[in-house]
Design a protein around this nucleic acid. Sequence first.
DNA 1: AATTTCATGTAACCAGTTACATGATTCA
DNA 2: TGAATCATGTAACTGGTTACATGAAATT
Lengths: 193, 193
Amino acid sequence: MRRDEPISTFLLAILGLIAQAPRSGYDLRKIFSTTPMGHFSSSPGAIYPALGRLEKMKWIEGRIENPKTLRPRQVFRLAPKGKEALTRHVGQPVTHDDIVWKVDDLLLRFGFMGDLLGREATVQFLGEFLARVEAYIPVLKQHLESLARHPAPVPTGRFALEHGIESYELQARWARRVIRELSPVSKRRPRAG
Amino acid sequence: MRRDEPISTFLLAILGLIAQAPRSGYDLRKIFSTTPMGHFSSSPGAIYPALGRLEKMKWIEGRIENPKTLRPRQVFRLAPKGKEALTRHVGQPVTHDDIVWKVDDLLLRFGFMGDLLGREATVQFLGEFLARVEAYIPVLKQHLESLARHPAPVPTGRFALEHGIESYELQARWARRVIRELSPVSKRRPRAG
DNA sequence: AATTTCATGTAACCAGTTACATGATTCA
DNA sequence: TGAATCATGTAACTGGTTACATGAAATT
């Protein structure tokens, strides 16, 4: 078995967007530069070579729309190989390192997951996510304590770490909420009485 | 006037840490790999060349500790030019783009700011940060509304965006709290009665 | 005696940034 | 008529990743 080629956050974004609907390089640029999705800025020098690579790997395929014009618009759609790779990637288990170094990536994977994996797998993903986050918070609090032992006149370092901790706590709350909303309530039991 | 050479998040982290105390490449690697500070992973292939560049720019200067051994430990301290550049960089005004694409960078700047700029400038920075965040939240809510108009069976995209909005709301609360804590309360007025 | 930790670095590769280039079409 | 938008791309540069390499000192 060949090992999976790793999918960077940037490629993930491109693949995910193309999975939602066929798109051109220009479409992607617009999305990256105008919507909250994708704070990966995107210059043509990043997008077009990436699309070229994905096409060469047979993960996407381009179809030229107006063949006669000089610079015809080329729309890419996801090829079976790409769909397989993308699906496998977003469904990967959540690791500790993901939580510490790649939250953005996790959130992006989550954002595309609904259509690709369905409800059950999504809930499972959130469960793993929640467990990892809950395990990490105490570690951060430990660091905070040792930081607090060296007081500074303007302790911005400590405040920054507190911000980090609060962020993870928020993520845990968010995950719990979404799990709840995605779990079948078997038609919300009517109030007794 | 020569334009400032831009300081990447990675260089910022290195400079800020060296500003706190003289450190070797190895020290930095340890910090990046073991503490919550710096989710910029750091391989030697990133750290050592970066230190080399900073030294060539005269922003830091290295002092070799055990000159006789084959691989002597080299400890870097911040040079005046580096301190000036770092101070200028962290004190830069908070822009909209920072809020959207470089929150990590902002938090890092904030974390180092206490020692470099003092209380007043820090509070001002937080004020700008808060204003930008408060201005951005409605924009995100707008996007959320338009997303909500295309319902999906498992709307993970919508949930991801909600996560983003909640994060910014948290940041606003955090900023308000820290501003409060850093503002001189003129000795907390004793309760009347 | 073997493993881990301290400590620094290089080389090949890959990918992203910036700036440049082209030219049609639509709008003011 | 001039500006903005649509639309795609290349070239030079820079910097980060991975993997490799070296070897002393401390620990087990």
